[in-house]
């Protein structure tokens, strides 16, 4: 069964890609869940469409670049506005995300051409190339280094901004770097994971891990295990049932979430 699976070269690439993307998403997801930024990362995913549209309007050849640039600007803008405004940030994020997505959709759908981009909604992990896997490895390494140096700062700033500042932590800088990192990773992986599912993949493993962890080490370890496990199982199941890979991964991750939810209740109870 497995030899049949690996007889295609692209399948090796896909497995490799999943082995890099899922731990990366698990890592980012833990911080996104802790800092209640689920809405923020969702908005970034949707901004990918706008990024492509802006690229097309400006005549940029490689829309990947315009997509990433737009997401970075968008993320920093959201951070800045959230910091300035007194009203709740989820409303502000929603306003900006809806607005930018609508602009993106209207540009891309002009002349009835949207079907060209609809693959972005669901994503296609089977299309990943060796070169793109190399990009992913670089991003993973950068994220890991950032995590080792800045994890404590982010955690502290999430628990209390003022307390973190009193300990001399450069809160705003760290928050902006994290936002840019999330923006880059979300937009780069959109092609393979799809706009509709990318947030699920970020949030679910971390949310499941949160249910059954008591400290940050358990939290990271469980998130990592759940993420890689749902990635690989989702891929195998999708291959043998001929269902799109992204949704299948999310289904497995959701199942894990519900199990841990019940387990967590039991542990408490």
């Amino acid at each position: 069964m497995l030899s049949e699976f690996f007889q295609y070269d692209f399948m090796k690439n896909v497995v490799l890609a999943i082995l890099i993307i899922t731990p990366l998403f698990a890592l980012l997801g833990t911080m996104i869940v802790t800092r209640k930024m689920a809405f923020f990362s969702d908005a970034l995913g949707h901004s990918a469409l706008t990024g492509i549209a802006v690229g097309l309007v400006c005549g940029v050849e490689d829309t990947d670049i315009s997509m990433i640039l737009f997401a970075i600007v968008f993320a920093l803008l959201l951070n800045y506005i959230s910091g300035k405004m007194a009203s709740s940030t989820d409303t502000i994020i929603s306003v900006f995300a809806s607005c930018s997505t609508a602009i993106g959709l209207s540009i891309l759908s002009k002349g009835g051409n949207f079907s060209k981009y609809s693959s972005l909604l669901v994503g296609d992990i089977l299309s990943i190339t060796t070169k793109e896997i190399l990009y992913l490895v670089v991003i993973f390494a950068v994220t890991l280094v950032f995590w080792i140096f800045a994890y404590n700062f982010m955690e502290a700033a999430g628990i209390s901004r003022t307390l973190a500042k009193s300990k001399g932590i450069p809160v705003t800088v760290i928050e902006n770097i994290f936002a840019v990192l999330v923006a880059c990773i979300v937009t780069l992986s959109i092609k393979w994971v799809g706009i509709l599912l990318i947030n699920a993949l970020l949030i679910l493993p971390a949310a499941a891990a949160k249910n059954i962890s008591v400290n940050v080490r358990d939290y990271h370890l469980f998130a990592l295990i759940f993420s890689v496990f749902s990635g690989l199982v989702g891929l195998f199941v999708s291959y043998f049932t001929n269902v799109a890979t992204g949704p299948m991964i999310v289904i497995v991750a959701s199942a894990i979430y519900f199990v841990t939810f019940l387990l967590g209740r039991k542990m408490e109870g």
Binding site: N152, A156, I159, K167
Partner: peptide
């Protein structure tokens, strides 16, 4: 650890 040290608490 997150407020008072540089030792990555998650690791």
């Amino acid at each position: 650890a997150s407020c008072c040290s540089k030792t990555p608490a998650f690791l």
